[in-house]
């Protein structure tokens, strides 16, 4: 499993994302650039230029036609994947920390930062997908959920876009009902349907859905990752590691959770690599045991993404590199706990 090293960023990575087929990889970093890569050989397809600040978040739609990015320049931008053209720009009062397409790619949610007296919020926009008029988008969000309490750091759509899940700076995971036809605007306390304190007061750094969105994994600075049922918000599994985690992702075909993190970036210079633990770690999804770890980055890992068909995974680090690892056949054939403790594909 020889990794492909993508060195197209000059600063630390913020998020990476595979498209649905897994042939393209999008990466955003603190250096304002959005890169698109061919995942199989690491060749750069192109860049999306226009942001004037750290790009915090990226998402691509199900057909790989539209790309959405959120940035610290208080903008969210819509791009055409194939041409690199910027189609539309939304302006906010504060930075756009997280963006995500809905399941059917007709809506977009954005988490905005709480700063300068503005409250943090989640806003949802309808996307006009008609190629002739897609440079005209509605500037008005269909709904806004404002956070009176601790701000949200991550968010995603639940299956069939029936709910919105948010992860908060105090470790809370909350569920909001989302009806596309009758979107409700208001403050979180009124709209929140369920919540659970998943990370014991520490900030949630990532939230990634399983392939059918019925469960998701969160990672937190409390050194743990949690597997949570989307419908009930019940914590199904806990993966307790030794370092603060920045990202966690669910492997779609094998029973693994891949987590990454490490010593806080600010402390890195004072500790050795060994103490930092800058490895990606593979945890068994069901048995909650660590199975493998893979070193490579020389700084904390900020973001992890897995190929939607489970053939590869990529990690982006504070060191500015993206490493794409294609799994060997051994990875798929191995039966770590013996044949009778294997999980069939449909049970993943």
């Amino acid at each position: 499993m020889r990794p492909i090293l993508l060195s197209g960023h000059e600063r630390s990575l913020n998020q990476i994302k595979f498209n649905r087929e897994g042939d393209l990889l999008f990466s955003v970093s603190k250096d304002n650039i959005v890169n698109a890569w061919f995942s199989h050989n690491g060749e750069r397809l192109g860049t999306y230029e226009g942001h004037n600040g750290t790009v915090w978040s990226v998402d691509v739609d199900a057909t790989s036609t539209l790309l959405i990015t959120g940035s610290a320049d208080n903008q969210m931008r819509l791009w055409e994947v194939s041409s690199g053209k910027c189609l539309f720009v939304w302006e906010f009062n504060t930075a756009a920390k997280r963006v995500a397409f809905s399941e059917d790619s007709t809506q977009v949610l954005v988490v905005t930062e709480a700063r300068m007296g503005y409250r943090g919020a989640v806003q949802v926009f309808r996307i006009n997908r008609d190629p002739d008029t897609w440079t005209e988008q509605s500037k008005q969000p269909t709904r806004t959920i404002t956070f009176s309490g601790p701000k949200a750091t991550v968010a995603a759509f639940a299956p069939l876009d029936q709910y919105i899940v948010t992860g908060h700076e105090n470790g809370k995971v909350a569920l909001y009902y989302h009806d596309e036809k009758d979107p409700e605007t208001g403050i979180d306390a009124e709209l929140e349907e369920k919540s659970v304190d998943a990370h014991g007061g520490e900030v949630i750094t990532d939230l990634q859905m399983s392939s059918d969105r019925t469960y998701f994994v969160t990672s937190g600075k409390d050194k743990s990752a949690k597997l949570i049922d989307t419908k009930t918000l019940q914590i199904i599994k806990t993966y307790a590691t030794e370092t603060p985690l920045n990202s966690a992702s669910i492997h779609p075909t094998k029973p693994y959770i891949i987590v990454g993190g490490g010593q806080e970036a600010m402390n890195v210079t004072t500790t050795s690599a060994r103490q930092g633990r800058f490895e990606t770690r593979f945890w068994h999804k069901v048995f909650e045991e660590e199975c493998a770890r893979l070193p490579g980055h020389f700084g904390p890992i900020n973001t992890i993404a897995i190929h939607p068909a489970g053939k590869a995974y990529a990690s982006g680090g504070e060191d500015g590199y993206v490493r794409v690892n294609w799994f060997d056949p051994g990875f798929f054939n191995s039966k770590l706990y013996g044949p009778d403790l294997e999980l069939s594909l449909e049970d993943q």
Binding site: E103, L160, P308, L345, D347
Partner: peptide
């Protein structure tokens, strides 16, 4: 647990009248 959540999802799909569009690896 997986069987239950799968069944629930299936039901929901029917209710919404939507085909599956999730990135099912298969």
């Amino acid at each position: 647990w997986r069987a239950r959540s799968r069944a629930e999802l299936e039901e929901l799909r029917k209710e919404y009248g939507k085909e599956s569009v999730a990135n099912i690896p298969q």
